[in-house]
Design a protein around this nucleic acid. Structure first.
Length: 105
DNA sequence: ACGACGGCCCTCG
DNA sequence: ACGAGGGCCGTCG
């Protein structure tokens, strides 16, 4: 259970990730930066990791800053699968054409 | 209030 | 290229 505050940090993250178009990916760093704190990448990952945002948010569309997959609470395999289904190819745990599908806010 | 954890990032050896 | 350490932010116990 998470304390339901008036729009938690998670809500902000989720709101942004939510608007990420299909076949596109973003990075924790970009999200954190969009929130106003590029150093808060840990908080962002934490928010997503808690699944607080649930399936309503495509957390799998969020990858690492170097084009890596990162991680996934339900299973990294699932994340890769989801990406693949959306047209995002993954090579050796890295996004194929990451810079091409990278969605900038 | 304090300490610890986390799907991280960056810098240094 | 690889490994280890530090840092910053937020939430939980």
């Amino acid at each position: 259970m998470i304390k339901a505050r008036k729009q938690d940090f998670n809500a902000r993250v989720w709101n942004k990730i939510k608007r990420i178009p299909k076949g596109r990916v973003t990075t924790y760093w970009e999200v954190a930066r969009a929130l106003g704190s590029p150093r808060a990448v840990r908080a962002v990952g934490n928010a997503l990791g808690r699944n607080l945002l649930a399936p309503q948010v495509p957390c799998h569309r969020v990858v690492k800053s170097n084009g890596g997959i990162g991680g996934y609470s339900g299973g990294l395999e699932i994340k890769i699968k989801l990406l693949a289904k959306e047209g995002v190819s993954v090579k050796n745990g890295k996004i194929s054409g990451f810079n091409e599908i990278f969605y900038k806010f």
